[in-house]
Design a protein around this nucleic acid. Structure first.
Lengths: 339, 339
DNA sequence: CTTGGCACTCAACACGCCGGAGTGCCAAGT
DNA sequence: ACTTGGCACTCCGGCGTGTTGAGTGCCAAG
């Protein structure tokens, strides 16, 4: 029993099971893959693999299916991420071409990823953390209401409606705008809070309260974690292709997709850009999603780092999915950089 | 055979079927509802109702289920929308309280609606058509790139990155900003195109091209129908509660939810605010959604009209759903008005 | 270590058999 | 003219039984 052949058998089992979705037996295995040995031999290998916990059988006298551990082994040791074909690369580039704002980039990426992988795609919006303030605009809505618009280097726009305690004059507005912009523009949003915090002392006592209120709202908008917590989801319809049992896979999946916080946890920490992470079945943080895997990658330019990925059944085409995720992460990164 | 009793029977059938999801027979019917007559009598009524096409039986020797026509009759003639309880009203108001921008309002509304109805909720973003321009901000991104931010009366913000043919100076930028704002602010976006179109003649020849480019981008942003076509979807997880056959209901539904254009068509034209529309099964425009119904209502203040609603199985609690949709439409409207 | 042979296991499918819910119809009752 | 109890009939759905076939584990021979 050569070690290599045993692993070849494992690889064959994984590939077969992924494509047919049915437990694979020794006979069909030697038919489909040229292993050059008899079914009996394969059975011996299988027994060994089962011993090691890499495969299992749903019931006696059925074929084998890979365990989570088996998939893990497959992903780590038995496969390399394929490169995308030139045509695919062109298709990806074309798909992202012509996006006209950040929202648009994210939307397109989700669609693209869902389409490429035929699975559910998730794209986290770029984190604000490292971004800088490009401009702050204040617009009077009424005599005591103010709309503050915060434009960030990432192209991201945040807005807040602010109630003002005093009557709002044009002069006050201009002054506010000027002071705030000179103080905040160019700085990282993480530093902006400090820079703005110092302001009120240089202001006429009468307007101090207004200042405080506006600055507070802006600081809140900047540090608001909701921004990083936003995610876009696409390809939900691909759930229908799971063919899997509804209750055990699709239902919990639908529930998870509603909870963006859950999705963020699934994507995990944004890693080095374009470095693909795979989390298989029970390795993830949620028991209900024990039969789903997550393939994720970090993406981003210098000032906008984040994560994207897909989630699907543990029984998925890992090499293909990983290639797609990596490719999209790369293209989105480069697209964000040039923008 | 009194006419009234026949209709009482129809009502009873609908209510029973909605709650049990099972074909309802004559015997169980007289047990659960106090009709004061024998099963045999009910059978006669049923035969008549079937004759009229209001109910049908899945197969001989099974109970009856309402047809689409039956539901239609039920909705039009046999029921009135219940008012919401005081507690419910408070819950709704509380849920919307504290939303800080338009996006937020829409998000919350979707969640609220999904939660109230236990079904899939759809909220269309307010149409821009009647909104006016509040402010236009131009920010230099690099020497030949420009970010235009368009702030509308609805609180909606649109942005575009614009490539400029010439070197961008601060003076040019200020001039542009000033001219554009004086021309466009306060006008409806539908008129803004004309107002801006006249501008270039008053400008130094050298800057004309820049003007044209920027104005074109702004006009495009204003008239961009994508804005009205945006929708928010929530409560997808409620699909799991349909319990219905996966392929015939849930799968086409998931596909529809991906296509926002389809959803918009489902919601239909925004009608008079808070006027509830019901489209049952085959009445809708899509054959694949023949077993789903849509309950929708218009909502909005003077300058932001749009539609929201839910979609669910034809077998749904119409009175309750209609009440919820109407209530949410009202609250969102009033919330938008005061903002 | 590989291989063919062999007995064994067990899910999946088909078949046949009721039971029971439900119907339609009819004749008698009010 | 409607209502009602009775009755024969239909047919889905669950259950036990038998059968099939893919797949296994083990063993003895190559």
């Amino acid at each position: 029993m050569t070690e290599e052949r045993k692993l070849a058998v494992l690889r064959a089992i994984v590939e077969d099971y992924v494509s047919t979705q049915e437990p694979v037996g020794s006979k069909t295995l030697v038919e489909r893959h040229r292993l050059g040995v008899s079914p009996a031999t394969v059975r011996n290998d299988m027994a060994a693999l089962e011993e090691e916990g890499l495969i299992a059988q749903p019931h006696t006298s059925a074929g084998r299916i890979p365990t989570d551990k088996g998939y893990r082994f497959f992903v780590d040791r038995l496969t390399t991420i394929k490169a995308m074909s030139a045509a695919e690369k062109r298709a990806i580039a074309g798909f992202l071409e012509g996006a006209h704002d950040l929202d648009d980039v994210v939307q397109r990426s989700v669609r693209l990823l869902a389409q490429l992988t035929q699975q559910v795609a998730i794209v986290q919006y770029p984190t604000l953390a490292r971004s800088t303030v490009r401009h702050v605009e204040l617009v009077a809505l009424s005599s005591n209401r103010l709309l503050a618009v915060l434009i960030l280097s990432t192209g991201r726009v945040e807005q807040r409606v602010i109630e003002i305690p005093v009557e709002l004059t044009d002069e006050l507005l201009s002054e506010l705008r000027l002071r705030i912009n000179t103080a905040a523009v160019g700085g990282r949003i993480t530093d902006a809070a400090d820079a703005l915090g110092d302001l009120p002392e240089a202001v006429a006592p009468h307007d101090r309260r207004t200042y405080t209120v506006v600055v507070a709202a802006l600081v809140e908008a900047m540090s608001d974690h909701r921004s990083d917590e936003r995610v876009a989801v696409g390809g939900t319809a691909n759930l229908a292709r799971f063919g899997d049992s509804f209750d055990s896979t699709i239902k919990p999946m639908l529930e998870a997709l509603e909870e963006h916080v859950v999705l963020l946890k699934l994507l995990g920490e944004a890693t080095t850009p374009a470095h693909v992470t795979v989390r298989i079945g029970h390795e993830g943080p949620y028991d209900q999603l024990a039969s789903t895997s997550v393939v994720a990658a970090g993406y981003g330019a210098i000032d906008a780092v984040s994560a994207l990925g897909v989630v699907g059944p543990t029984r998925m085409d890992y090499p293909g999915t990983m290639a797609a995720v990596r490719a999209v992460a790369r293209y989105v990164s480069s697209y964000l950089e040039e923008a």
